[in-house]
Structure formats: C-alpha cells, structure tokens
Design a protein around this nucleic acid. Structure first.
Lengths: 231, 231
DNA sequence: GCGTGTCGGTATCTGGTGTTACAAAAAAGT
DNA sequence: ACTTTTTTGTAACACCAGATACCGACACGC
C-alpha cells in the first residue's frame, strides 16, 4: 500500500514525535499498518466490538463518542488528520473498544496492531525504543488530563469551580489580569455547569469585589478571597 | 543495598507482573533502584517538587493526597507494600510530583529512575521489553479507571448515577438480582453524593417499582425504566 | 440479658443550581 | 449603515440535593 502519501501526516502525529520523515517511512515497513477507507457515517470503531489496533486518522474527520445506555451520544473528541485513537485501551486488559468512532466526512485511517508496537521487531529497528517512549508519553499525558478533569468535576459548588479555574489561569500566566481562552458557553461546558448559572455566579463575585471582568478579560482583585473560595 | 529482602514484595507488584523471583532479583541489578527510609509523617514525595522516579512501597503504609489551594487535603489512594506511585507523571512532560505522599507508618520505598525503565540497558536484558509492557499496562489501566470516574461524575442527577451504576452491575453479572460490592456510605462516596440523598433516591425508585433491594442485595424490576433513567 | 457500635432509612429545612425566557451588547455579515 | 447572528447578563421559578438530626434494625462483646 502507498504509505508514502501519508508520511507527512504521520510525522506530525504524536506517536511519531521526534521522528523525521525518512525514519517514519522506514518504520512503516516494520509496523505493517493497515489502511482503511470510510464513507461519511461509517464506523472506524464500534463500542463493545473487538479492539484490533491503535488508529491514526490520515484524511477527513471522525468523531469519538460514548453512547450511554439510554442511547444518548456524548462526543468525547473530534479527530483530525494525525490524531490517534484507541491508545489507552491498546495496553489495558480490556479488549473491546470503549468508544464508537464515526466518520464525519469521508475518511482514511491507519491501524497498527498492539503487538507491532511493543512486540519484538525482527529487523531490530533502533527506533523501536523511542516509539514505545512516545506511546508511554501519550497515555500518561492522557491520564493526567483525565485526572485534572476529575478534579474539576469533584468540586461541588460553582464558586469553587470558577475560583479554582481562575487561580489556575493566574498561576499559568503569573498575572492577575488575563484573557480566558474560551467563551462563557465553553467555560460552562468545561466546568460542567449551565451557562446562566456560571454568569450569575461570576457577576455576584464581581459585585463582592473579588474579581472584575469584561467579556474574556478577567482581573483578580482579591486573591486571598479567591483562594478561600476554592473549595 | 540488600534488595534480596524485598524481592518477594516486588514480585507481587504490578510493575513486575509475570516475573518470577529470580528474574526480579536479576532485574534489580540492572535498574539500580534507590531504597529510602521514612519515619511516620515524613514525605516520600511533595507536590510541586522535582520528580525523581517511580516509587514502590516496600514496607509500611503511605497516603497519596492532593492539597487544594485552600489547603484542604483530599486523600487519593492508600499505598501498601507492592503498590506503585508516580507511574503516570513519569512519562508525561510534567516534571513535578502532582501529589504529596506521606508515610502513615514507618515506611520503606524504592525508587527507579525514568531512564532506567525506558532507557537502553547495557546488559541487554531480555526482560526489558516485558517491563515496559507492564508499565504501559499500568498507565493505561489507570487512564481507563479515570475515564470511568469522569463518566460517573459527569452525570448530574442522583437517579442517573444510581441507574448507570446498577446497569453496569447488571451487565457485569448478567443477572437482575445481585449483591452490591460496597455499603451505602462507600457507594455514596463513589457516586460523589451524600449518603442520605442516595438512600432517599433508592427508596423512591423502589416505591416506583423500578428496583427492589434489601441491604446489599438488589433486584432490577423494570429494566426499561432503569435504562431511561440513565441520564 | 444488656449495652455499644454500625448501618441504613426517614423527615425537615434550606440553599444552590438548572430551566426558561428575554433583553442588551457586541460581532459579523451584507 | 443596516440587518443578522452570536454572546452575555438578568430575572423568576421550581426543584433537586446537601445538612442535620433522629430512629430502628442488626451484630457483637461482655
């Protein structure tokens, strides 16, 4: 199969971080990936079905979503060329896909079997070690993101969530005045609260003189009070 | 140092899964771990400080906890001999401990540097590959657990949480009558709700004829209704 | 038997949060 | 400059869930 066309995309993928295009090309011979094509609405993976390997989107766009028992879909992540999916389940004891991945547009994806990544390579490729390092990095990074999400979700009050979030921004920028990277709707979504409730609470914090804001620009006026509100 | 004394404990650790005692003993020579001793109340790791390596508890007991900005401690996990900590941060881009680990009792722990696990081994040990496989498994398993936790936390209503939980138990056992693996307090904790609220909701679901229960024994009476309640 | 402790169910009360709907402001398109 | 769309603030209301306190059932030790 013509892997050559996709070396460019793959070399920009997290899985092949720190590999140049030539290296990726050589590795593909070793990893023996399978390329599959999907029409819009087709499934790249179906939750509950047998897991066959780590996927990388080459062309088009796909959406990974969970379907709860009532049948409601919750989109977990939008996958674009270079994005990897199934990296977590690949090395766990679970052998079924935890999510369904559906092509949003006509789509091509490449699958690498679990064994080919960890398993011993008969060509004794020197880059195998780095590939596994990348794999470990990706899964660890993913776990850290999830753990951060759990922290936010565990906070009961909206005030606590807002305060924690603003303090994190403060720590990140080092300044008491900064721009929020998302609008109210997205922030409400991220904090798992309703948009009007978020607005209401932010405004009452402003009325109390703890913060000040206009649109995406926020200024922390009373850092101590904010710290007290964080749970 | 006298690693020999701890080969037994280590061989039961997840990191050395599928290794027998002799293999573990040989590997230790290669991994060059450092053993440290701690008195009760001492810190095995401090959140925010430089991460130095993956830890394994050898003796005693330690607690890993997060400290939020207000200073409140939230215990994440209790670590006993054989338990591993720091495995997630080890291979992410983060270089500081995300949690504080404190000795609950006089404690011994072993630390293995990140490089020694992934890095190339000059003795070319054949088991290095399996060690990395175990590492990947542990991190992946951890990520899956977190993702399951996120799912539960994302459900807004108590009813939704209970229904989802019971349906998971039903799927696991395949029977409509089963035993809950925890008491009300623990279940409330797991679902991140208060114990009386959990009781109240379970009882009203019983009154509506959806489920029936006595202590830890639960019977699903109306599966369809339960599925409808799951969000 | 009796006290003691644990666990689970129940009642009351209150406060925080979602829902809905609408208005004002800003941004974007024409 | 005008309309249209998006974004954000505001208000009223209902209601779910937490806090607290108390009671009954049961297990255990003496």
């Amino acid at each position: 199969m013509a892997f050559e066309n996709y070396v460019e995309v793959l070399s920009r993928s997290e899985l092949f971080r720190d590999f140049d295009r030539d290296e990726v090309a050589s590795m593909l011979k070793c990893l023996e990936p399978k390329i599959k094509e999907y029409g819009k609405g087709n499934y790249l993976a179906v939750a509950g079905e047998e897991f066959q390997g780590i996927g990388i989107v080459l062309e088009g766009e796909a959406a990974a979503y969970k379907e709860n028992i009532a049948g409601t879909r919750v989109i977990m992540v939008l996958l674009k060329p270079g994005d990897v999916f199934g990296e977590i389940v690949a090395f766990s004891s679970q052998s079924q896909w935890p999510v369904t991945v559906e092509a949003q547009q006509p789509c091509k994806a490449l699958f690498i079997s679990r064994e080919k990544i960890v398993g011993e390579c008969r060509h004794l490729c020197p880059w195998h070690r780095k590939l596994i390092e990348n794999m470990l990095m990706m899964v660890s990074e993913r776990a850290l993101t999830l753990s951060r999400k759990v922290e936010y979700l565990s906070i009961k009050s909206i005030r606590g969530k807002i305060s924690t979030y603003l303090l994190e921004q403060y720590k990140k920028t080092g300044k008491t005045t900064f721009m929020l990277p998302m609008n109210r709707n997205e922030l409400a979504d991220f904090l798992n609260v309703s948009r009007p409730s978020l607005s209401r609470e932010m405004c009452s914090m402003r009325d109390e003189g703890i913060i000040d804001f206009h649109r995406a620009s926020v200024r922390i006026k009373d850092l101590q009070a904010l710290k007290r509100m964080a749970q």
